[in-house]
Amino acid sequence: MSQHTHEHHIPLWVFVNVFLALIVLTGITVWVSTFDFGPLNLVIAMAVATVKATLVGLFFMHLYYDNKMYMFVFILGVLFVGVFITLTMYDTMRRGDLDDAKAGPIQTQAAFYDSLDIRAAKFGHGDGHGTTGEHGSTATTEHEDTTHAGTDAVPHDTTIDSTQPAGMDSTAGHSPEETPAEGH
């Protein structure tokens, strides 16, 4: 056999030790979570999880012994997840003007809590269709000038596809240019 198959020589005790380490680390992370360290809880939990995942990757998945190309591919995947989360949160955590940046979604409290009585929903969902008319009509008035009718043709009627959840009715009358932007 060539030198490429050297994982043959990995003894079983390596795997047993890794297994025991993973169990111990699970115990540690559960135990730590019973204390309140504020934001540090998340840091500790993620650090422990990263150590566990690294152990799995290096030994169970043979990354420590194998061609380093595989490790490169793996790290590349993780790296781009990092890029994705970081750059997205540059937006979501700093919404608004430069000098008045704040974190938050477009609409903080879901409109669905206003239009839908949560307790009533337990006994069959309330009919949410009643609230649509007013939302729909406000959307239309902004587009009375129908010379540019391309997007104006979006349905103004409040008939909603029966598969639609009731909580979504408030957006039914919006036309595309009210959605924040179109793509290039």
């Binding site: 997205t88 937006d91 979501t92 979604p105 477009i106 609409q107 903080t108 409290q109 879901a110 409109a111 669905f112 909580g167 979504m168 009715d169 408030s170 957006t171 959605t179 924040p180 932007a181 793509g183």
Partner: peptide, 12 residues
């Protein structure tokens, strides 16, 4: 979905 407390810009 903003009506459900979500964020359409996140979709983008």
């Amino acid at each position: 979905d903003p009506a459900l407390g979500g964020d359409p810009v996140l979709y983008q």
